[in-house]
């Protein structure tokens, strides 16, 4: 892998973002990325964090509510179950609750998550970071990674339902509003992530 060293040199570092000299470098990188040479470096994490925080604050100010993701997916699953077995879905304590809120196209979080995908696409395209790939460590196959991804997604789905939210609805939104349950969720998620990490080391490193 001869490209590895070259990519590492364009990997983002903390000190880079924002300085005028670097702005020129970024523009050049972006041009190079559009030529298919190399993707632009990621934004400084603290700058990205402030941006996300301001988006969340805007949601509070305009709507009185925060962000979410797993809630939108629950509405989609509920709508799917309803399409297959309407009575069964409406009788179910969880799906019924989501269905009672109205049809899927009137769901606030469903529109928001549609926007998330669109915003991610726009950002990736403009930075030359759109790439058809499977992100994984060097020691596993794409197939193994996709199986882990599906399994991890399923476990996460169960966890998010039990906790009544995920990284968006609990960690970001509830965290900023100082909800005690949200901070319990954050503590649990980080603790379990670190505790389980050795089991999945092969997949990533």
């Amino acid at each position: 892998m001869t490209g590895a060293a070259a990519y590492r040199t364009v990997a983002p570092s903390l000190t880079r973002a924002g300085s005028p000299a670097e702005a020129g470098t970024d523009a050049r990188r972006r041009a190079a990325a559009l030529d298919g040479e190399a993707p632009a470096a990621y934004l400084n994490p603290y700058v990205a964090g402030v941006g996300l925080g301001l988006v969340l604050l805007a949601a509070f100010v305009v709507m009185g509510r925060g962000l979410g993701a797993s809630g939108a997916f629950t509405s989609m699953v509920a709508a799917g179950v309803e399409a297959v077995a309407p009575e069964h879905a409406r009788a179910n304590g969880m799906f019924g609750h989501y269905l009672a809120a109205g049809p899927l196209w009137t769901d606030w979080l469903a529109w928001e998550i549609l926007g998330v995908a669109a915003g991610g696409l726009l950002s990736a395209l403009l930075a030359g970071r759109f790439r058809s790939a499977v992100e994984r460590g060097p020691r596993v196959t794409d197939r193994a990674r996709l199986l882990y991804a599906f399994g991890g997604g399923a476990v996460m789905g169960v966890g998010a339902k039990l906790a009544r939210g995920c990284t968006s609805g609990q960690a970001l939104t509830g965290g900023a509003l100082l909800s005690a349950g949200s901070w319990l969720f954050i503590a649990g998620a980080f603790a379990a992530g670190y505790a389980a990490a050795p089991l999945f080391r092969r997949q990533w490193l």
Partner: peptide, 17 residues
């Protein structure tokens, strides 16, 4: 739920959003 979610996060590598 947070504990279960954390295991799923490191296994899947991404969160819902």
């Amino acid at each position: 739920g947070g504990l279960v979610f954390g295991v799923g996060f490191v296994m899947g590598g991404l969160c819902p959003g």
